[in-house]
Simulated scan of single mutants.
Amino acid sequence: MKTIFGPINSRRFGSSLGIDLSPALKQCNFDCLYCELAPSATTDEQKNVVEVSTIINELKEHLHDKIDVITITANGEPTLYPYLDELIDELNKIKNSTQTLILTNSSTLVNEKVFNSLLKLDQVKLSLDAVSNSVFKRIDRPHVNIEIEKIVQKVIEFSKVYKGKLFIEILFVKDLNDTKEEIQKLNDVLMQLKVTRIDIGTIDRPPAYPVSGVSYKELHDISHLFNSTLPIHIASRVHAEPNNASYDDDDEILNTLDKRPLTAEDIDLLFDEESKKRLYLLIKNSRITKKSVGNLEFFILHENEERKRAK
């Protein structure tokens, strides 16, 4: 089966050419409730393995200079691939200016070889849906002997030494990890990380098990439960019904953006037309500016940006 797919125009990562390290079947050490793939038994190793040479030869046929990222993923967990280190070395030989990215559930960071291999990538996206043991086991359904406490410690350690762009993704499932208690625990961990962006989302494809996502409005409310210094981005637009909130004066808008920077898409969903006009006047008057964070553009307070530059 083909290992290369795309390119796909990813709103978060640009033009992405994907590598599927498990094209024949699902091979994963999690059996997440929300997975778009069918339920399956977990595993801690890949038994159906594609050769590195096969992947590289196929990639060369599709790689060109308009690709922003080569994205390593899998039907399952890509870091279970036994030749990952060799593959990354080969990718770095041919990628030129294209960035390399992996999408991983974070679990194998406890493996020193995997940890060191990921350090060689330009971008890494780590999933972290829960940090308390009971919620982690319910939502991610991990393979035997996988401990969230050890994963969290390695995520923290990785963020301190990694030199590329690090993204954290949290997927919220209704009535599971969306409680104030779990969000506070997540917040405490996130405050220890050095990251480019934290993407929060919810279920937007048919899940493996009968669970539900949260609405865009609920995601927006959740974003305000995190510390305002964290680079939170609402990644999911599922159930994104316009809120059309009215912000009656400039201070309301400034206070909102001070607590949580928003993208243009967020503004379209959250602000009514009069509030948008007020926002654009604030931009014109240099009270609000734009800042690019990991392929996305956010509206932030101009004084906040000046303060950061001063530091």
Rank of each mutant, 00 (worst) to 15 (best):
V173S: 11
L176K: 13
D248F: 12
T202K: 13
Q99P: 05
R237H: 10
L171Y: 03
N116W: 02
K154F: 04
D122K: 12
I156E: 01
N255W: 09
P7K: 10
I267F: 02
S286F: 05
F5C: 12
V161L: 09
L190P: 09
N75F: 01
N57Y: 01
I156Y: 08
L121E: 07
I234M: 12
H302Q: 12
I232L: 05
G6W: 04
C32E: 03
L121Y: 08
R260K: 15
I198M: 15
R141M: 00
D272T: 00
R12P: 04
N255Y: 10
A310D: 06
K277P: 02
T79W: 03
S117T: 07
E273I: 07
K165D: 01
K311T: 09
V195Q: 15
N244E: 07
D272F: 00
L219T: 02
S246D: 13
S159D: 09
E305Q: 13
D272M: 02
K311N: 11
G201N: 14
L225Q: 15
F167Q: 07
R197I: 05
E149V: 08
N57L: 04
L80F: 08
L257H: 04
G18C: 08
V52L: 10
N177K: 12
I56H: 08
K95L: 01
N116G: 06
A74Q: 03
K311D: 02
C28W: 02
A208I: 10
V124T: 07
C32P: 01
N92G: 11
I8S: 09
Y162Q: 10
G76V: 00
E241D: 15
I148M: 13
K290C: 02
K259Q: 15
R12D: 03
S97R: 14
I72D: 02
D178T: 11
K2P: 11
K137H: 04
T73M: 01
A310Y: 15
L186G: 09
N227W: 10
S236N: 13
I200T: 11
R197E: 14
H302L: 06
P207F: 13
D89T: 14
S292W: 08
I67D: 05
N304V: 03
I267R: 01
L63C: 03
E147Q: 15
I55Y: 03
L270F: 00
L230S: 10
L21S: 04
N285P: 00
D251A: 12
E36H: 13
P207Q: 13
L87H: 11
S215P: 12
L59S: 03
E149T: 11
L186A: 12
I151L: 09
D44G: 07
V131F: 02
Y81E: 01
R197W: 11
Q46G: 03
N255F: 07
L257N: 04
P23E: 07
I151Q: 04
D188R: 14
K284M: 02
L219F: 09
K125Y: 01
L80N: 05
V155Y: 01
S10Y: 08
A245E: 14
I102P: 00
T98K: 04
P142Q: 01
R237N: 08
K150Q: 12
L176C: 11
K154V: 00
K284G: 02
S97I: 08
S106M: 05
P206D: 14
G213M: 07
T100Y: 14
K95V: 00
T196Q: 15
T108C: 05
